[in-house]
């Protein structure tokens, strides 16, 4: 049969270079090959940067000022995630409430703050709220709502992320089995006790992974606060990079430093998020180690 003879002929012809390359490739672990790909990407980027006149001396000179902005990012993020979590718990309790006022307010909250761009909301808090306050309130109360850019920015981020996290928390609360509610009720617990002692602790475990993702996104979005024109005291890496880069026309160098700072920060947080998830699984996974 001619058919079978050609099929046999093919592997014989594959002796030689192609096959030895394939054999060598298979002997290298997958991770090593992936590392090589990353190395090539970084090599190409470095080549491109230096061809564009990368000014290392300038970078070394300015990097400390840009990196120092990370403390502003951390401060903004920690305050905003704390406030957003509180807003999300209240919002979620509203979303599952039978009280029409609580349900209505939380519905408006999630609809508006998820339905409009974050950057628009930041400017609303910064520029539009003072106009509203001056129109409605007598002095000195009106001036209470004229905020520095940093304050307006953190409030804006908190309200925006609180709205998204409201839906996460609502889903988390609803994912707790109904038998838990009945067991708490059967013990004579009040609504507050049931939520605090039974439902929310279990919902928290469910919402930790998606909340971690929100926090990582929030860390990056705090860079938007700089667009409100924060002063140098409250300047995050992006804002510092913008100001110094523009002044010396070293935008590439400045923005690369800022990008690396955010990248490093999110990588560190992702690591701790995985640790926390493992710890929270106690009581749910039979093999989980007893954490102290």
């Amino acid at each position: 049969m001619p058919d079978s003879s050609t099929r046999e002929a093919v592997p014989r012809q594959r002796h030689g270079l192609a096959e030895s390359v394939e054999a060598f490739s298979l002997s290298i672990p997958f991770r090593v090959k992936v590392a090589a790909v990353w190395a090539v990407i970084f090599g190409l980027l470095a080549f491109a940067f230096f061809r564009s006149g990368f000014d290392i001396a300038w970078m070394i000179d300015k990097a400390p000022a840009i990196v120092r902005g990370v403390w502003v990012t951390i401060l903004f993020s920690v305050i905003a995630i704390t406030a957003a979590t509180l807003l999300a718990i209240l919002g979620a309790l509203g979303r599952i409430s039978k009280n029409p006022i609580a349900y209505g307010i939380s519905g408006f909250y999630t609809s508006f703050f998820r339905g409009t761009p974050l950057i628009v909301q930041l400017f609303l808090w910064y520029l539009a709220l003072p106009q509203l306050a001056i129109g409605l309130l007598p002095e000195p109360y009106a001036s209470w709502f004229i905020w520095p850019a940093a304050v307006a920015g953190v409030v804006g981020i908190a309200f925006n992320y609180g709205a998204y996290m409201t839906e996460i928390f609502r889903a988390g609360i609803e994912a707790v089995p109904h038998g838990q509610t009945e067991a708490a009720d059967a013990l004579g617990m009040s609504y507050g006790q049931r939520m605090r002692r039974v439902i929310l602790p279990q919902a928290m475990r469910i919402v930790i992974p998606p909340t971690g993702n929100e926090f990582i996104a929030m860390i990056k979005d705090t860079a938007l606060i700089g667009l409100l024109g924060t002063t140098i005291l409250w300047a995050d890496p992006f804002r510092v990079a913008q100001l110094t880069g523009k002044a010396d026309f070293r935008n590439l160098e400045a923005l690369i430093i800022a990008a690396i700072v955010y990248w490093g920060l999110t990588a560190i947080f992702s690591f701790f998020q995985r640790k926390l998830e493992a710890r929270m699984s106690k009581g749910y996974v039979r093999t989980a180690v007893k954490a102290g």
Partner: peptide, 17 residues
């Protein structure tokens, strides 16, 4: 309810405790 002890088919123990 504080005078009634309830035992459920599905136990319903609090898993986080």
């Amino acid at each position: 309810r504080t005078h009634c002890g309830m035992v459920f088919q599905q136990f319903n123990l609090f898993p986080q405790m």
